Every structure is written in structure tokens, then in C-alpha cells.
Computed example of a mutant assay.
Amino acid sequence: MKQFAVIGLGRFGASVARTLAKMGYEVLAVDDDEEMINNIADEVTYVAQANVLDERALKSLGLRNFDAVIVAIGQEVKASILVTVMLKEMGVSKIVAKANDDLHGRVLQKVGADIVVFPEREMGIRVAHSLTSRNIIDQIHLSPEYSIAEMVAPSHFIGKSLTESALRQKYGITVMAIRRGEDIIISPEAKQVIQKGDILLVIGSDAKLESIGE
């Protein structure tokens, strides 16, 4: 079973830890605040109260044995950078770090973070897209121009097969899955007919994703 460690149990860190635990993975939640630890203790596999800026305390957690460590330290830029450096030196195989802005993100990448995330920015983008598109339910940005989106099947596609809808040919959009009630159709065939109420999981450019919902 995969093991994950989350350092920093603010809103972002606690959400990641709880979600991973609900998915069935072993999760170690780490923070120096006893109240934060107590709030999540019953929902994850392990908890540890530790000052992660103390290198000996950090090493004692055995983090190099985990599949990934998420550095979710809040607004303390210096602390997140120092922890990332120490984790890299310890030989942690995969480090995911939260950044507050572009400069913070670039520094985290240079000192060893394998993946840098911008939770506030990404949430803002997702909310904006959900407000301006009638069909998009949720959206994950892969780059400044491309996204994976969950969207309600547009009315003008209902009753048509994926081939007839020409999503790939006309819009350059690929349907990766269809959620139909309680069922999920993975990698649907070209002859699959889109039905009313279907939720499509698609990948494509942001401009095209917005245009098919108009």
C-alpha cells in the first residue's frame, strides 16, 4: 500500500491528508500545532507533532520510506523552502510543495520539489471558469492553455455518438470517460451515444472547452 506524508495541516494540507486517507492510503500527518494534530488524528493512519525545521526531528519521521511527501506549510515561505531542501537531501523520492506565488514556486523547483502546486490560484481559475461556462463542473489546468474538465454533456450533443459529435475532429477534445448515473464508462468507444445527464471527463484546450458549452 502506498504511503504519503503531509507536512503542515492548514486547510490545504488537512484536505490532502483526509482525501488520501479516504482513498485507502496510509497517511502520516505532521504539524507542530497540537490542536491541528488532534483535529485530524482520527481520520489518518498516523500523526506526529514535530518541529520540521529541526533536521533531527524531520529525519526521525522516516520520510524517505514514503512514496511522496507533501509540503503544505502555509504562508511561511522560508520554512517551506528549508523543509524541501532537507527532504531532498534525505533522499525522499517525490516531493510535492505548495507555493504562494511564481517566485516561491520557482525557488521550490530549484531546491528539489518534483511538483509545485498553487492551490489558491488554481481554485480561483476553477471558480472563474465554472461561472463563465454553463457546462463545466470542475477543471484541472495542465498548462496555461490546456485542461482536464468535468462537464455536463451539452444539449446539442445528446443523442449523438462520439463520432457524430466530432469532438476530436472539430474541437480537438478527447473524451476520457463518461459518468452516467452510478456507472462510469472508461475510454468510451466511438459509437458510444451521449445521453441526457451524462457527465463527460474531457481533455483539450481551454478555449475549445468553453466553446463547446456555448
Rank of each mutant, 00 (worst) to 15 (best):
residue 1 M to I: 08
residue 1 M to L: 03
residue 2 K to Q: 15
residue 2 K to A: 14
residue 7 I to A: 04
residue 7 I to M: 00
residue 10 G to F: 00
residue 11 R to E: 13
residue 13 G to S: 00
residue 14 A to T: 10
residue 14 A to G: 12
residue 16 V to T: 07
residue 17 A to L: 05
residue 18 R to E: 15
residue 21 A to R: 03
residue 24 G to I: 11
residue 25 Y to W: 08
residue 25 Y to K: 06
residue 26 E to C: 06
residue 27 V to W: 01
residue 32 D to W: 11
residue 32 D to C: 10
residue 33 D to I: 11
residue 34 E to D: 13
residue 35 E to I: 15
residue 37 I to H: 09
residue 39 N to D: 09
residue 40 I to A: 13
residue 41 A to T: 15
residue 42 D to A: 15
residue 42 D to Q: 13
residue 44 V to G: 02
residue 46 Y to Q: 12
residue 49 Q to E: 14
residue 51 N to T: 01
residue 55 E to A: 11
residue 56 R to Y: 13
residue 58 L to D: 15
residue 60 S to M: 01
residue 61 L to H: 05
residue 63 L to M: 02
residue 67 D to R: 06
residue 78 K to R: 09
residue 78 K to V: 10
residue 78 K to G: 06
residue 80 S to D: 00
residue 80 S to I: 01
residue 80 S to Y: 03
residue 80 S to C: 00
residue 84 T to K: 13
residue 87 L to A: 06
residue 88 K to V: 12
residue 91 G to W: 05
residue 93 S to M: 04
residue 95 I to M: 01
residue 100 N to C: 03
residue 100 N to R: 11
residue 100 N to Y: 13
residue 101 D to N: 15
residue 101 D to Q: 05
residue 102 D to P: 04
residue 109 Q to F: 09
residue 110 K to M: 14
residue 114 D to F: 09
residue 115 I to K: 12
residue 117 V to S: 03
residue 119 P to V: 03
residue 122 E to T: 04
residue 122 E to W: 05
residue 122 E to G: 06
residue 123 M to E: 02
residue 125 I to G: 03
residue 126 R to T: 06
residue 126 R to Q: 05
residue 128 A to W: 04
residue 130 S to I: 11
residue 131 L to S: 07
residue 134 R to W: 05
residue 134 R to G: 13
residue 135 N to P: 02
residue 138 D to I: 11
residue 139 Q to W: 06
residue 139 Q to D: 06
residue 139 Q to K: 07
residue 143 S to F: 03
residue 144 P to Q: 02
residue 144 P to S: 04
residue 145 E to H: 12
residue 148 I to N: 07
residue 149 A to D: 08
residue 150 E to V: 04
residue 150 E to W: 01
residue 150 E to Q: 09
residue 150 E to F: 00
residue 151 M to E: 06
residue 154 P to E: 04
residue 155 S to Y: 12
residue 156 H to W: 10
residue 162 L to I: 14
residue 165 S to K: 03
residue 166 A to E: 13
residue 166 A to C: 07
residue 168 R to Q: 08
residue 171 Y to K: 15
residue 176 M to W: 03
residue 177 A to V: 01
residue 178 I to H: 02
residue 180 R to G: 00
residue 181 G to V: 06
residue 187 S to N: 12
residue 188 P to L: 13
residue 190 A to S: 15
residue 191 K to N: 11
residue 195 Q to D: 06
residue 196 K to S: 14
residue 197 G to S: 11
residue 198 D to A: 09
residue 199 I to L: 10
residue 202 V to C: 14
residue 205 S to L: 08
residue 209 L to S: 06
residue 211 S to I: 13
residue 211 S to Q: 14
residue 212 I to A: 08
